[in-house]
Each structure stands twice: as structure tokens, then as C-alpha cells.
Design a binder for these strands. Structure first.
Lengths: 141, 141
DNA sequence: GTTAATCCCTGTAGTGACTACAGAGTCAAG
DNA sequence: CTTGACTCTGTAGTCACTACAGGGATTAAC
């Protein structure tokens, strides 16, 4: 069992068939050999590469970043520092996103705490959303 | 100063001109009257509505959710509970995202802590990413 | 009164990272 | 040899905008 069809590879890696073909088209995985009928034939290196891509995506790396990582690995002459930088940038980005989401969380929780629910045709949340910022009101005379 | 061109509205609300036209096209803001030459003329209600949309987006509501909120407000017969539900869903979604990002943060930080940097042509991060999961290895014989 | 600068118009196409077909061909089992 | 599941290519759709291209409107200055 050293060779796979695209469907088998898809099940193994939990990457969509269409996505595998897409990765091939955009050059992230190499063109595999084919059967006489044109079916793609995959083997261990493809599995490893696709698995690498999947793990990177799971860690939130964007496609350009994944490409950079792949290129570094492909060239077999990357340094630890190069990889470290990409990962450190990603960590920064993740931490920034967490901060932003925390702010959202606070704002939403604050609004919800003022909201009594029920059948009343009125809601503090709508009031907040409807409020026109001070700066605009000047414009309205 | 009770009427605005699209450019003035854009500056006031900090919403892109193209985005304002897009919102009009998809029915989130009403078609404004026009000058004889075809220029859009906006006034207070448009400013308020666009401001509502912008605030909702800032709170992370998706377009369908913003639409729901707008519909509720438009119909002027929403109940507090309806609005509360949308906001509560959004809060849940935000909290889930934060949790996911925390996991990412931990994984990345862990990888980075094992990484010494420097000019060595080798990196624990690449090793981790290159690891083929146990389940796959069976397939490789 | 005309010209230049700045605005605005419509419509189409592009973004990221896939996903979803349509219509045709291939393969493996019975 | 047929059936049914799989695969092929290529195009178009997704979300929520953004970026033009190629024109017309408006306004301020001269």
C-alpha cells in the first residue's frame, strides 16, 4: 500500500480532493505521475508534503507563509533563524487577534448585561448600535 | 449642512466609497435621491444607517447578522429577546475563536521555545511540521 | 467663459483560499 | 460486460469587499 489515488490521499490527510488539485495547480505540491487513463498516483512524499501543509495551516499560517516554509525546506539550506522568524511573526499575529477579540468580547458582554430580554419591543443593544457618534451629530445640525 | 455627497459620507463614517455603493447594491442601505447629473445625495437617515452598520461590523457581526439586525430595526417590532439572541450567538462565536487562538498561541510558543535560532541548517519547528502523523505512517508500510 | 482639478458615475474584474458543479472518461468487482 | 464508484478538466461561485477603466459632473480659479 504505497500508492494512493487522490480520494485515498484525501481521506488520509483530511484534505478535500478539490483542495489537493488546487494545491497542485498553484504549485504547492508537485505534479504526480498518472495512470494510462490520466488518474493521479500519489506516494509517500506527496503524503508527507500535504501533511506538512495541513499542519502549517492548522497553526494559522497563511498561504504565502506556508509557501515560504515549503521553499525553505525544499532548498534544504534554510537556517533555524529563518524559520524562527516566520513562526515568531505568526505568534505575534495570533496574539494581536486574541487582543482584538477580547475587546469584542468585553463590548458584547457589556451590552448583553444591560439587556433584559423578553417581549419588550425595545432593546438597549439596538439603542447602542443606533447611536450616532458625537462627531457626526455636528453634521446633522 | 444636512446633505452629503458620497465622498463626504465616506469621510464622516470612515466607510469606503466603494463599500457604500456595494451596500446599496446588496440592499443594506436604501437608494438615495440623485442630482440632475446623477450624483447620490445623502442625508441624516443614511448617515445613521451606515453608522449602525459600521458599529455592528466593528463588533464582528457577519453580514447576514447585520442584515437581521437591520430588518428587526426596520420593522420596528423587534423584541429585546430577538436582538439578545443574535448578540449572544456572536459572543459565543467570539469566545470560541479566542479559545482556538489560544491553542495556536500555545503551540507556536512551544515550538519557538525549542528553537535556538542561529545559522544552523536545521530547526525543530521544521521537524515538527514535517512529522507524518502516526496514523499515516501505517499506510507507508 | 473656459479650463483644470477634483469629484462622481457604471460596470467589470480581482482578492484569498478554496468549494461546487457539469459533463465526460476510467477503473475494479461481480 | 456492465454497473457503480471513482476521477478528469475547466469554469464559476463563495464572502465582503477593493481596484480599476473609461467616462461624465461640478466647482474654483483665472
Amino acid at each position: 500500500m504505497r500508492e494512493f489515488t487522490i480520494g485515498q490521499l484525501s481521506k488520509l490527510t483530511e484534505v478535500n480532493i478539490e483542495t489537493i488539485r488546487y494545491y497542485e495547480k498553484v504549485g504547492m505540491i508537485p505534479n504526480p505521475p498518472r495512470t494510462s487513463g490520466g488518474f493521479r498516483i500519489y506516494s509517500a512524499p506527496h503524503l508527507e508534503r500535504l501533511s506538512f501543509i495541513r499542519r502549517s495551516k492548522e497553526l494559522g499560517f497563511s498561504q504565502p507563509e506556508v509557501r515560504k516554509l515549503l521553499t525553505l525546506v525544499d532548498e534544504h539550506k534554510y537556517t533555524c533563524a529563518e524559520v524562527q522568524e516566520i513562526a515568531a511573526n505568526q505568534l505575534d499575529a495570533v496574539r494581536t487577534k486574541i487582543k482584538d477579540l477580547r475587546k469584542l468580547e468585553k463590548a458584547l458582554a457589556g451590552m448583553l448585561s444591560e439587556c433584559a430580554g423578553g417581549d419588550i419591543p425595545d432593546c438597549p443593544i439596538v439603542d447602542i448600535l443606533s447611536t450616532v457618534p458625537e462627531a457626526y451629530r455636528k453634521m446633522l445640525g
